[in-house]
Design a protein around this nucleic acid. Structure first.
Length: 297
RNA sequence: GCUGGAAUCGUGUAGUGGCAAUCACAGGAGACUGUAAAUCUCCCGCCUUUCGGCUUCGUAGGUUCGAGUCCUACUUCCAGCA
């Protein structure tokens, strides 16, 4: 009876938020203090070699705290939300088995929700069939759906979603309505102007660190058209290298793209009623209190 | 100083006598379960929840049934010449 608190399974600590909100640094600090291990819920840092452009936590930053979910595949390989969920589920079990606290940290809302609400994904795409479907126009796909009794997705103008609906023979939405047990979900609330400034500064940092060189190497090695290379900065570097835009235009455009990304990330997270929005300082305080019971001595 | 050109939404543009506001950028809101930093939708002069109402093409006049469009003057900017 007396040992009930200590025997409780450590919670899954989820720290979500837009890019450049400071969630990574907070997670590292708390993980160090409370014996945590970090799973990065980020659809871009899973790629090897994309270090500078994705603002992947550096080796120095990672020292002392195990990080999972980084460098899982090459940029020319396919990695999906379902792959991430499988991976993260596994890691959460392993981390807990070590008596540590799992931290799920990132800005990819789909990846986070997939884990937190235990999404059941539909059938994996067949690459040959998908290629065929991609050759069809949106009108043709709509006609195909009508003829084959496939229910259109809500956003029927989105070709990718229509193709996916065809692959699954309808729209698939299996999930839990409550977060998985023992999860604490915190969203990093940011002031608009502050976040904008942070994004701008980080952009300068990314260019100073040599993202152009990194992109050049990646482009040469893996080509520019893989999904991994569609992330914000890399297509811009390509245009810059082609001479289509100047260095200054590339830098400005990158800030715009990163800002829009941040907005979309917040839009996703906002509809999740289980997210507790807190500033960085509030989040640190709140999580420290919550985790005090589980401190590894 | 002279000559020519330009002035339209936050920005850049389209509109060459007939309901001004095209396209792009920037901005905003949102959707999104095996590509999610992807992809897609909507809004974007002002007022209005909507229906709708009101205003506007540098400024002031003029011509005309009717002017962003033609004319005159002025202002500002740009280019060329001095």
């Amino acid at each position: 009876m007396a040992s009930r608190v200590e025997r409780t399974e450590p919670p899954l600590v989820v720290i979500a938020g837009p890019t450049a909100s400071g969630k990574t640094a907070l997670a590292i600090k708390l993980a160090l203090e409370f014996g945590g291990e970090i799973i990065c819920a980020d659809s871009r840092t899973v790629y090897k070699g994309m270090d500078i452009g994705t603002a992947k936590p550096s080796v120095e930053e990672r020292a002392g705290v195990p990080h999972w979910g980084l460098d899982l595949v090459n940029p020319d390989e396919v990695f999906t939300a379902a792959d991430f969920k499988r991976y993260a589920d596994e890691k959460i079990v392993e981390i807990r088995a070590r008596g540590h606290i799992p931290f799920l940290v990132g800005g990819t809302g789909l990846y986070i929700d997939a884990v937190v609400y235990d999404y059941q994904f539909g059938q994996m795409a067949d690459s040959v069939r998908r290629h065929e479907l991609e050759q069809m126009s949106l009108e043709e796909l709509h006609r195909y759906c009508e003829e084959n009794n496939v229910e259109l997705p809500e956003n029927s103008q989105n070709k990718r979603y229509v193709i996916r609906a065809i692959e699954q023979n309808g729209v698939n939405h299996k999930r839990n309505h409550e977060p998985i047990s023992t999860s604490i979900i915190v969203g990093i609330a940011t002031n608009r102007d502050v976040l904008r400034t942070r994004i701008k500064h980080r952009a300068e940092q990314i260019f100073d660190d040599g993202v152009v060189e990194e992109a050049k190497i990646l482009g040469k090695k893996y080509g520019w058209s893989s999904e991994a290379m569609t992330g914000n900065i890399y297509p811009l570097v390509r245009h810059y290298l082609d001479g289509a835009i100047t260095m200054q235009e590339m830098q400005q455009k990158f800030v715009v793209l990163d800002w829009r990304l941040a907005k979309r990330q917040v839009t996703w997270l906002k509809r999740n009623a289980d997210v507790q929005w807190k500033t960085l300082e509030e989040a640190e305080h709140y999580l420290s209190q919550k985790l005090a019971h589980y401190r590894i001595s």
